[in-house]
Write a protein that binds this DNA or RNA. Structure first.
Lengths: 222, 222
DNA sequence: TGTTGTGAATCTCTTCACAGCT
DNA sequence: AGCTGTGAAGAGATTCACAACA
């Protein structure tokens, strides 16, 4: 007698790649809306996103929205559907630890962007950086992490501290009840299996570019 | 009469994922060396990198290095081999455009890290941000991009400007002869096919974390 | 006609499992 | 005994190609 709630509606589990692309599509679609475009074909969205039309259609299948043959997708409806699929209906708050250049950059990026997902507190160990507001986000001393996270019911952590401090911050986050971490420190974190970690490794990204750019040079030379 | 140079030695083309992991392994191995560890098994490296042992061995196969059965890999030799494989032997310079918080963070990350890969010039349109040195890197006005890129033979570009300026910066980079771009702006760039672009989309990363963290909550609740 | 939605085929990446080495 | 290197199997993601539809 499985009691399947509507959100759990028997959809196949969706891959990480698809989630990333849906986030991208949504952003592109918002841009279109602001230019008063209101319908789009998979083909055109694919072009904008640098993907194939078939892939766009598959990804959209995952959210459970349907377009109309010959008229494509209604952008407004599609954005709403993606939102229903991606966003936690209750909204989600994030806590950022490490108010250096990178931390500030990330705060800037997100200030007042999405109602369902925002950085609601920032932390640092340096008293000179705390007790004020940066990009609309209040800053606290790291010692207050647990209190603030539990008070504000924060579920997401963002780590923008140097590598040597990252593991200890991750541990504090997990102890405070955070269940997803975006990690910018260039070391893998050890966390319990039920905590989702996404590494954003800037060094790795640049080394990849260097490698493939190098290949481009050799091939151009042939 | 194909004249195959030693570097082109008939290896299968290596996947993007493998390149990324090799960059990670190298970083982990440097850490071990600094702790005077000098041999390692695929199994242990896998544990550190959060991968399987088989995958580590496959990735190392790609660089053409061999360990010894029962004694594992010599870390020093392995680091050198990965370097020979990943790094352009001539070294590579990168140019960063956009000296905001994110730009400074990226400059910090790379200042004096790798001899074969460094950010050798930074650019902005704001005169208050140029004509000085940040994290050992000289800063110029964006108008000088082409001159500096060609003077210093720069092949890699890093875009840390706001979304609305990114496409125009990318175009300037391509015109200056850059053939690989690391893009932090949250829009896909349109560049010629022979230019490699790696998008580092911070918004997408955070939305992914939010999605999977949300899943963790629902599953914990069941 | 020109689009979507999707089963099936294909392609790519990962893991298995074991021969061969030390 | 215990590791590496790797062919082969397996999983997963992408693309093909076409029926159904407006």
């Amino acid at each position: 007698m499985d009691n399947v709630s509507p959100e759990d509606k028997q959809r196949p589990p969706v891959s990480e790649r698809t989630i990333g692309r849906l986030s991208l599509y949504r952003r592109l679609l918002y841009n279109l809306l602001s230019q008063n475009v209101d319908r789009i074909y998979s083909h055109d969205l694919a072009l904008m996103a640098g993907r194939t039309a078939a892939q766009v259609r598959r990804d959209i299948m995952a959210v459970g929205y349907s377009g109309s043959p010959n008229r494509g997708y209604d952008i407004h409806e599609l954005v709403v559907s993606i939102g229903l699929f991606l966003d936690n209906p209750a909204g989600m708050g994030a806590a950022l630890v490490g108010i250096g250049n990178l931390g500030r950059a990330v705060l800037d990026f997100f200030s007042g962007r999405r109602p369902k997902l925002s950085i609601v507190a920032a932390f640092d160990v340096d008293p000179k950086k705390t007790l004020r507001i940066i990009s609309e986000c209040p800053c606290y001393h790291l010692d207050l992490l647990r209190n603030v996270v539990q008070d504000k019911n924060i579920r997401i952590g963002i780590i923008t501290v140097p590598a040597h401090a990252a593991q200890s911050v991750a541990q504090k986050m997990v102890e405070s009840g955070i269940c997803g971490i975006l990690n910018f420190a260039p070391i893998p974190l050890r966390v319990p299996r039920n905590v989702y970690v996404e590494d954003n490794d800037i060094t790795m990204s640049l080394e990849k570019v260097a490698f493939f750019a190098g290949k481009n040079i050799s091939e151009a030379a042939k």
